[in-house]
């Protein structure tokens, strides 16, 4: 007979689901306990039954990508598991996500902690981009943090390999609106890792302000919100903007000046402001790369030095966007019924 490596136990037997912790691009994410070792993992179930076309191509892409990535700041895919007509991705368990952890008040982050989180995010991105991968969905709920203060990028459902030497044509319907860079809002389909760097800039500000900075309702409004903060793009700041596909449709109606530094100086140190400004450069060609960002004076010169928020282990509960959303909905219901 054929000798085949057999999976000793099915997913149900091996892992015991504890709770739901998130909603990925293509399926629910659960916290589960390995019944053998007692260790926690995150199980991401790939929904197959709803897929008339079989195995979702996004899931296939995520599996392929994660199998070929290994870095301290990228979530580890331990293994794949097939059970009862479902495919599960088994990840290392992360206690919190950024959106969740910024919404709690028990543990307050010092500037050194925030610097560490920012640095870890950039290190993950530098590795990804070095490997020729664009994430395309950097946002608070995809940035995972554990109680040891380690930050890891997760959810690669929209990520893909890109050509380093030649920029290809991709879809511009990527990245959650609030973190979407202006060139995508102007309709470009030719882009590279710079799109992640804009999102990283948004996240960096969010670390300090505790909430997303560019909260648009739709694509047009999103641009307006950006203009209000960093001003409208001028030919000096971004020469190619006028040649982008949707420029004529969505171009700014009036000139707005850049208020970035005055708006954020109460939150960020001068070197942090410099870096955030470079990450949020209009012109993708001038936007700082992850590798350059890691070398910014904010990390190399300005005090305090980065320090991982190891104290998170004292934090009660686990903080994910999902729970934060539920909590908010509960509160809303309460206040509504109260009035």
């Amino acid at each position: 007979m054929v000798t085949r490596p057999t999976t000793p136990k099915s997913a149900e037997e091996l892992y015991e689901i504890v709770s739901q912790v998130g909603e990925g691009t293509f399926g629910k994410v659960y916290k589960a306990r390995n019944t053998g070792s007692g260790k926690f993992v995150a199980l991401k179930r790939i929904r197959m039954e709803a897929e008339r076309d079989g195995f979702p191509v996004t899931a296939m892409r995520e599996i392929k990508l994660l199998q070929s990535l290994r870095h301290d700041n990228i979530v580890r895919l331990y293994e794949m598991m097939v059970s009862n007509g479902s495919v599960y991705m088994v990840f290392e368990y992360m206690d919190h996500d950024l959106t969740g952890i910024l919404s709690q008040n028990q543990f307050s982050f010092t500037d050194a902690h925030l610097k560490s989180l920012c640095r870890q995010m950039l290190a993950g991105l530098a590795y990804l981009h070095h490997k020729g991968v664009v994430h395309r969905d950097i946002k608070g709920s995809n940035i995972l943090i554990n109680n040891r203060g380690e930050l890891k990028l997760g959810d690669f459902g929209l990520a893909r390999f890109y050509q380093k030497r030649r920029k290809s044509d991709y879809t511009n319907r990527v990245i959650t609106l609030w973190y979407r860079p202006p060139e995508l809002l102007f309709g470009t389909t030719v882009y590279g890792p710079e799109v992640d760097m804009w999102s990283a800039g948004c996240i960096m500000l969010e670390l300090f302000t505790k909430k997303p900075v560019f909260q648009g309702n739709d694509e047009i409004h999103q641009l307006d919100v950006i203009y209000k903060i960093i001003g409208t793009p001028t030919p000096e700041r971004w020469p190619e903007v006028t040649s982008l596909p949707w420029y004529e449709l969505v171009k700014p109606k009036e000139v707005v000046l850049n208020h970035f530094r005055e708006l954020f100086q109460k939150w960020l140190s001068p070197a942090a402001l410099d870096l955030a400004e470079q990450l949020l450069a209009y012109d993708p060609a001038k936007r700082v790369t992850a590798l350059q960002a890691l070398d910014a004076p904010y990390f190399t010169q300005e005090q305090p030095r980065a320090e991982a928020p190891v104290g998170l282990s004292t934090l009660e509960g686990e903080w994910h966007e999902l729970e934060t959303k539920r909590e908010r909905a509960k509160k809303r219901r309460k206040t509504e019924s109260g009035t």
């Binding site: 197959m48 079989g54 392929k64 199998q67």
Partner: peptide
């Protein structure tokens, strides 16, 4: 029927142990 091919795809991916590289 498409679903027969989708079903086979599932068994295939399973036996490939999700190693798609």
């Amino acid at each position: 029927d498409n679903s027969k091919l989708a079903e086979m795809e599932f068994y295939l991916v399973d036996d490939l142990e999700c190693d798609l590289i």
